[in-house]
Simulated assay, not measured.
Amino acid sequence: MRNEKRSQLTGKLMLTLCKHTNRSMPLGSVASAALLSVTMALPVAAQEIQNVSFILDWIPSGEMAAYYSGVANGFFEEEGINLSISRGYGSSDTVAKIAGGVADFGIADIAAVFTGRAVAQAPVKAISAVYTHSPHSLFVLESSGIDGFDDLEGKSIAVSAGNSHRLYFPAVAERSGIDADKIKWVTADASSMAALLIAKRVDAAPFFSIHEYYQNKAAETQGEKIKVLPFVEAGFAIYSTSVIATEETLEKDPELAKKFLSALQKSLVWANDNIDEACDLHVAAVPEVALDDCVGSLTAMLAFVFNDSQEEFGLGRFGQDRLDFTYKQVAAAQDLATDFDTSTAIDESYLP
C-alpha cells in the first residue's frame, strides 16, 4: 500500500510540475549515460555502513565533480554512508522521485520544491542551499554587438518548452528597463539552441552560466566567442540548486541527514580547494566528461556556492530576504499563491 501511494504521488507530481523549468543545456557527449553511479570500495564492515542514494538534477557533467570526488575521497564513508549517485532528468523530476521514495536525497532547484509543495503538497523540503544565487543567463556572441540586456529589444532568443529562463525573463526585462514584448522568442529543442546561436540564426540563447566554457569551445571552432549576460547582474538574485529530502526521511533518521550534509560540505570545501584533483577523480568515475570541460564547469559552479552570501549566512544556509524574493519570482512565473510560507519548505536544522 505504501509503495502504491508513493507511485500515485510520483505520477501526480510529474503532471503538476510539468510547467516548471527545463535545464537549458545540451547533453553533449554525456547524453548517452542513462544512469551513472558511484560506490565506495574501501573495506568497511557491513554493520558500520548505511547505503544511501542520491539523485542529481541533471547529467553528471563537471559541475557535479564535488559529489563524485567526495565519494572517492571517502568523505561519505567517514560518516558511515555508502553513497550511490544517479543522474537526474530536471529538478521537477527529481522532486517527484524524492517525494515518491525513489532515493534518500537529491539536488533540485528551490523553485521546483516551492512548486511541488504549493501545487501538489509534495512532502519534500530543502535542507541546504547549494547555489546561493541563480546561474540563469543569456549567451550571445561577442560579434553580435549585444553588450547587455538593454540591447535585446527587437532581437531573437531561442527557448525550449517550459524553460525557466523564459518564465523569469519579464522580471529581468523590467529591471533592465526594456520591453519584454519586443523580444522574439524562437522555440527550439534544448540540444539545438547553442548551434542556432553559433550559426547566428538567433541573437541569444538561455543557458546556465556554468556551461560557458564548453559552449565557448564550440563557438571558437566557428571563429566566434560567447558573451554571458547573467540574470543576477540585472538584480535577479534568487536561490537555485538545493539539497532535498522528504519529511519522512528527516523525521525517521535525522542523524542520517546530518551525516549526509556533513560529508557533502566536506566535499564542496575540498573541491573548492582542489579543483584539478576533483576533476581528475570525477573524470575517472564519469569518463564521458572531458577533463578541461570539468575544470571549467566546476570552477564556475563553485562561485555559486562560495561567495558573499555564503560568507554572510554560512555554507548551505538561506537568507530570509533572498528566500522571500525567490518565492515571489517563482510565484509570478508559475502563477502560484502569493501567501505561501517559505519556512514550510526549508529546514536548516540538519546542517553542520
Score class of each variant (00 low, 15 high):
188 A>D: 03
289 V>Y: 01
82 N>W: 06
200 K>T: 08
257 A>L: 05
160 S>P: 15
15 L>G: 04
278 A>Y: 10
27 L>Q: 10
38 V>Q: 09
121 Q>W: 12
100 G>D: 01
294 C>A: 08
319 G>V: 12
11 G>L: 13
234 A>M: 03
186 V>Y: 04
12 K>H: 03
170 P>N: 07
73 N>K: 14
308 D>M: 05
239 Y>G: 00
264 L>P: 00
347 D>R: 00
332 A>N: 13
329 Q>N: 14
55 I>V: 09
333 A>D: 09
97 K>T: 09
319 G>R: 11
212 E>L: 02
307 N>H: 11
184 K>E: 12
92 S>H: 04
247 E>V: 15
26 P>Y: 04
321 D>V: 08
197 L>W: 02
213 Y>P: 02
253 D>H: 13
22 N>K: 01
325 F>Y: 13
231 F>Q: 10
224 E>M: 07
254 P>M: 01
101 G>H: 12
240 S>D: 03
250 L>I: 08
121 Q>D: 15
30 V>S: 14
317 R>A: 15
33 A>L: 15
40 M>E: 15
126 A>K: 04
9 L>N: 07
211 H>K: 11
69 S>L: 09
242 S>G: 08
157 I>G: 00
266 K>Y: 12
205 A>D: 00
147 D>N: 11
163 N>S: 06
135 P>S: 13
324 D>I: 12
232 V>Y: 08
332 A>H: 15
188 A>E: 03
186 V>E: 13
127 I>R: 03
286 V>E: 11
288 E>A: 13
